[in-house]
Design a protein around this nucleic acid. Sequence first.
DNA 1: TCGCGGTAGCGAAACCTTTCGCTATATCTT
DNA 2: AAGATATAGCGAAAGGTTTCGCTACCGCGA
Lengths: 128, 128
Amino acid sequence: MRELGSPQPTAVELEILRIVWDLGPSPVRDIHARLNEAKGTNYSTTVKMLSVMLAKKLVKRDEKASPHVYRAAITRERAAKTFLNELIEKVYDGSAMSLVLQALSKSKATKAEIDEARKLLDEMEEKG
Amino acid sequence: MRELGSPQPTAVELEILRIVWDLGPSPVRDIHARLNEAKGTNYSTTVKMLSVMLAKKLVKRDEKASPHVYRAAITRERAAKTFLNELIEKVYDGSAMSLVLQALSKSKATKAEIDEARKLLDEMEEKG
DNA sequence: TCGCGGTAGCGAAACCTTTCGCTATATCTT
DNA sequence: AAGATATAGCGAAAGGTTTCGCTACCGCGA
């Protein structure tokens, strides 16, 4: 059995994580409301998935609060980083840059973000 | 049963796609050699996976060639685009730019690539 | 206290992915 | 042409994810 270190979230798990990231710490009922809206699944399903995710350490819960309160155990940023690494590794064969170029080509960004990206590019160039 | 339009490749399917992208059109034996190297799985498994992938239209095959020749039915670019969209949608909540910034921060790139990225940024700025 | 609505847990069904054994067929080698 | 070797296919086991039914529990108002 998996015990330590959060494994990759599966499809539904990711859907739930997204909800928890959005809502912040919440009781099952609230999480279920959203999930049900999106997928029409049963309340039991939500409870079960959360318990599975608890075992995988994808979420934590406060059992002292009466309706238990769940919160994400990994940040959106960390999950994103993991996915990104996998994407780069598995599909782009290790070249982050080619991914960046592709993402840029379809991105809409603010002036501030564009400048930020320029700054990063400058830094990269200096270091070589 | 899924019939039309390639669904998201699963883990092993992606591993196989990667091999086929690398090798180009190949007979099972060659594909298997690589997969086996990575995972130690049986020849039958490779054949089966390829047949599943054929049904899902992730690969095509030339049956006229004597050892049948398989090739990817989707390009690396298209697969990447799909994953990227999903990543942006599901985790970054629609903001491609924040993904780009994160990818950039860990990327190693050549001068040419950096310039290319700058060009894209300039274009983006012009269009607003 | 009893009953009731909301909450939690668990086992197993249903479903999908991955693996392989067994069989059949084609191709080579002598 | 027989036997050996390589290729293809298929069904089903093994393993993982997702779903839910059923049971138990808890807190509260009658």
